[in-house]
Amino acid sequence: MTWSPILKAMPLVAAALLSSGCATQQPYDYTAYKESRPSSILVLPPLNMSPDVLATNSVLSHVTLPLAESGYYVFPVTLVNETFKQNGLVNPAEMHDVTLQKLRDIFGADAALYITVRQYGTTYAIISSESRVTAEARLIDLRTEQTLWSGTATASSAEGRSSSGGLVGLLVSALVHQIVESTTNRAHPIAGITSNRLLAAGRPNGILYGPRSPNYMTDGNTRP
């Protein structure tokens, strides 16, 4: 076995890591959000752009808690799913195509949350194995049809791992992690971390606190 391709790739990996840490996050414009002041949120089942069929239900099972803790009434996801099915809509793509006015008429919610899962599952690379979940979200006012907020978040099982042990050690560790994570659906708890990062209020450029939170309208309604 030759190590030359791996060694040649190391400078490129290092450069990518350095460049990713240089981006400056711009403040989000919350003007429409603050004017809307939604109190109830309808969460549509996430669109799944990953190859893992478990992604939609896994992410959906985690999103209610951070929204509720942020001060919003969240329509029960099982009730929402059943309502769609009773109207002949059985997959997220069809549900996302329903007009905003129709969603408002049926559910009476102030806003709808559209989620897209970009990454979900375990992958194996030369010197790393991880379960990663990436999701995007858009919060749309069902009364004005304005986009109130949008964001993205990622979580990985590789966060905080030690890189000691040399290259051979990294390869062995990657193989072990792949076996463990593939047999235990490690992506499901990672989806919970992603959902919290994406939808918990008080984070930079995240959603605002809702009217049921004691932090509502505190410090510009962005964080405590």
Rank of each mutant, 00 (worst) to 15 (best):
A55C: 05
L103G: 05
T56M: 11
N185C: 07
D105P: 00
T184S: 15
T147V: 05
L113P: 00
A125F: 06
Q86L: 07
V180M: 02
I207V: 14
E181H: 12
Y73K: 12
L18N: 12
T116L: 02
G192P: 02
N48P: 06
M49Q: 14
Q25I: 14
A135P: 00
N91D: 15
I6V: 15
Y73P: 00
G202E: 06
V133Y: 04
G108A: 05
V74M: 00
G108T: 04
T56R: 02
S157A: 09
T194H: 04
Q26T: 14
D141F: 04
A191F: 01
H62T: 12
S50K: 01
T116H: 05
Q146D: 09
G202R: 01
V168M: 10
L65D: 08
L175T: 13
A109C: 01
Y216Q: 08
S70T: 02
P27G: 09
I190P: 01
S39K: 10
P45Y: 11
T24D: 10
L17W: 10
R223C: 14
V98Y: 12
V180D: 05
D105K: 14
S129H: 01
Y33M: 11
G151I: 06
G108D: 02
L44P: 07
A201P: 03
V43K: 01
R37I: 04
T134A: 04
S213A: 10
A158L: 10
M10A: 10
L198G: 07
A109P: 00
I140M: 08
R37N: 15
G206H: 04
S20W: 06
N48A: 09
G166Q: 11
M49N: 12
T218L: 08
L54K: 11
D105Y: 00
S20A: 12
E130V: 05
A93I: 12
T56C: 14
D29E: 10
A16D: 09
V53W: 11
T218S: 07
L170P: 03
S40A: 06
G21H: 07
T31G: 14
Y33H: 06
R197H: 11
T154K: 02
Y120V: 00
L113C: 05
R132C: 09
C22P: 00
T218N: 15
P66W: 13
V90I: 11
S164W: 09
G210V: 04
N81H: 06
T194Y: 03
V172T: 10
N57S: 13
T152Y: 03
T2L: 07
P11N: 10
